[in-house]
């Protein structure tokens, strides 16, 4: 493999990695507040992509994306208001089943609202053939957008969860709901907020990756599995870890293409997920002391 070829693989790995990372972050927000995994996270991305494509017919791109983020955030809030809040049994098994049900519902709703056609947003800058030459390898400007938005989201979220009162209350709900309530935190509202926030971030992610991955009604599931792999790899709840995990998985995936047929690309990244789960479920950056307290 020549130097340029290797570099090209690395760049395509980073491209996929940042897409996975931006998906994985959405899982972290709800996990940080509720301690559950939202299996419908991938559908937020799909909804964000679909609505922004529809809005972009009538509005300029930035407004279309903003509207898509708002619409999806409302959907996220509604999901909590109508379903999660009213669950009689809040055990993990039931939460998993109900979010899976929601994910199917959102998918089928999208199939009936739009159709099964593959769509995509226009590229934010340039078009599909424009590329930037870095050290002899080529990269699409849209990738830079993904990386930029991904880093902004990570930075804002890190500050939000660490330094603001709301962010801290959200994390408190995750560690111990009863203790958080005793401290005067309205845990139910925090969960609604976390669903709204993760839907909004999912929608933003879905819009920004749409020109590269393209959007279809069922594109959410595969993205969600990758996003979850990335979130686990970086340690659940850790956004910076998710980015690192995303790049690791992206790189391994794109390097695997040079050895295995393309059809097995997904199998490679999911095998990595399984391996991580078996060997070190706390993730690459999870601390031993913290993971000893958790139930995997």
């Amino acid at each position: 493999m020549s130097y340029e070829q290797l570099l090209q693989y690395v760049f395509s790995g980073i491209t996929n990695g940042s897409i996975y990372a931006i998906t994985g972050i959405g899982f972290n927000i709800i996990y940080n507040t509720t301690g559950i995994i939202n299996f419908a996270q991938g559908e937020f991305l799909m909804l964000g992509g679909m609505t922004s494509i529809t809005f972009s017919r009538y509005f300029p791109l930035p407004i279309a994306v903003a509207l898509a983020v708002i619409v999806t955030a409302i959907v996220g809030a509604l999901i909590d208001f109508l379903v999660i809040r009213n669950l009689k049994k809040q055990s993990i098994l039931f939460m998993i089943i109900v979010t899976i049900g929601l994910s199917i519902l959102l998918q089928e709703a999208a199939l009936h609202i739009w159709d099964e056609k593959v769509r995509s947003l226009p590229f934010f800058t340039g078009d599909e053939i424009s590329s930037i030459n870095i050290f002899g390898a080529y990269i699409s400007p849209q990738v830079l957008w993904v990386v930029l938005i991904c880093s902004i989201i990570v930075a804002v979220l890190t500050v939000f969860f660490k330094y603001t009162a709301t962010g801290r209350s959200m994390r408190a709900c995750s560690s111990n709901v009863i203790a958080a309530r005793l401290c005067g935190i309205n845990s139910k509202n925090m969960i609604t907020l976390s669903f709204t926030l993760s839907a909004a971030i999912g929608a933003l992610a879905g819009a920004v990756v749409s020109p590269i991955t393209q959007t279809q009604y069922d594109c959410g599931t595969s993205l969600a599995i990758k996003g979850f792999a990335v979130a686990i790899l970086g340690g659940l709840g850790n956004s910076i870890g998710a980015v690192a995990g995303g790049i690791v998985i992206g790189l391994l995936e794109s390097l695997s293409i040079s050895i295995l047929p393309l059809a097995y690309k997904d199998a490679v990244s999911i095998s990595i997920l399984l391996l991580i789960l078996f060997v070190k479920p706390s993730g690459l950056f999870g601390k031993k002391e913290i993971s000893a307290l958790k139930d995997f």
């Binding site: 995994i37 993990i92 939460m95 792999a229 199998a267 078996f278 995997f296």
Partner: peptide, 23 residues
């Protein structure tokens, strides 16, 4: 290895296994 996991880790691991077989 899979049955050592619990909750959503188990759910995701079995989902991952199913996806690998499908692929």
């Amino acid at each position: 290895p899979i049955l050592k996991l619990k909750g959503h880790y188990l759910a995701m691991a079995t989902l991952g296994f199913g996806t690998i077989i499908y692929r």
